[in-house]
């Protein structure tokens, strides 16, 4: 089994999806000749031609809007928005049309498309290159919101997202693109959307995270084990919406305590919905309030202050200790 980083794993998923289905197209800024600014679409144009791997003009709304038209016709476009911070220029196409066409047409049409976007901190770049906006998409009925946490599940989730008959927003953590290599099977592999995974089993509390924060939660769990002798469970959501509430409830019924970790600002973020789901399903098992470790409720802070804003291992450990001591 080859060891791949997340960029190569995603590239493999795209390559295999395009090989198996002539209806799959790739569309976006610099995705063709350049292979994408993070090289996720590297070499696809050479293999599949410029009609299938389209270097579009620089216009997010028309990338998504024309892809909606392609999907209405029966194609399966995979769009790349260069950075999630630029997606507000196509947000209306996503909310007004991707998410609603199935309902608007009462099932006559559906939108089998994927919108890939790099999100999150760590690239030391300007504003709009490091934010986390998953909550906006997770709030929209009709969309699915997926965030992988490593090369193998990134590949399997992207393969599943492309086969999914509904529109999927697919966030890729920039911090993970080159972070680690994993064994990724050569033969095509999918995992079902909408299911969380237990990334580490434990019994004392549940750390809930997704994307780049899974690694932070796992490291925090190591610290808790080594320094506190505490056995933390880590849940990797993988899909933000539809949320796997059963997985959360099952874990918290066992541990009685939960801490949610995400890079997006805290208020009205995914953590709030996760906490509410735990309240709904595991209230009588709770030994402490559900805590959230998140970015602060401030706009972009600049990468010189990014570390102070995005959750890190000490903050997660501190929140876990406070929850355990409650």
């Amino acid at each position: 089994m080859p060891k791949l980083n997340m960029v190569k794993a995603l590239n493999l998923a795209l390559f295999q999806a395009m090989e198996r289905d002539a209806d799959v197209l790739v569309l976006g800024e610099d995705v063709g000749v350049d292979g994408g600014v993070f090289r996720v679409t590297d070499d696809l144009q050479r293999k599949f031609g410029s009609q299938r791997v389209i270097d579009s003009p620089l216009a997010e709304a028309a990338i998504i809007g024309t892809a909606v038209g392609m999907a209405l016709y029966g194609l399966k476009p995979v769009c790349e928005i260069q950075f999630s911070g630029f997606a507000f220029q196509c947000f209306h196409q996503i909310e007004n049309h991707c998410a609603r066409y199935r309902a608007r047409s009462q099932g006559r049409f559906h939108i089998p498309m994927v919108i890939r976007m790099p999100y999150g901190g760590s690239v030391r770049a300007l504003e709009h290159h490091s934010e986390s906006e998953e909550q906006f998409y997770a709030h929209i009925p009709g969309l699915k919101m997926v965030i992988p946490s490593g090369p193998r599940n990134a590949r399997a989730l992207l393969a599943a997202a492309i086969r999914d008959p509904d529109p999927v927003i697919f966030f890729e953590a920039k911090a993970l693109y080159h972070a680690a290599k994993e064994e990724v099977p050569e033969e095509s592999e999918t995992v079902p959307l909408g299911r969380a995974q237990v990334a580490r089993e434990g019994s004392a509390l549940t750390l809930i995270a997704y994307g780049a924060m899974v690694r932070v939660a796992l490291e925090a769990a190591d610290v808790l084990r080594d320094e506190d002798g505490v056995d933390a469970e880590v849940i990797d959501l993988l899909t933000i919406s539809p949320l796997d509430r059963d997985a959360l409830v099952t874990s918290v019924k066992k541990t009685g305590r939960a801490v949610v970790v995400h890079e997006a600002p805290r208020s009205f973020g995914a953590g709030a919905e996760i906490a509410a789901s735990i309240m709904d399903g595991a209230f009588l098992s709770l030994e402490a309030p559900v805590r959230r470790v998140a970015a602060h409720d401030v706009p972009f802070v600049g990468f010189a202050r990014e570390k102070a804003n995005i959750p890190d291992v000490p903050r997660v450990v501190a929140a876990a200790r406070a929850t355990l001591a409650f």
Binding site: G69, Y73, P77, Q93
Partner: peptide, 17 residues
């Protein structure tokens, strides 16, 4: 005006097929 890119996408898809 949000339907106009859809028309272009439909036309692209028709041409593609």
């Amino acid at each position: 005006a949000t339907q106009l890119p859809h028309a272009v996408g439909l036309a692209y898809a028709a041409q593609y097929r």
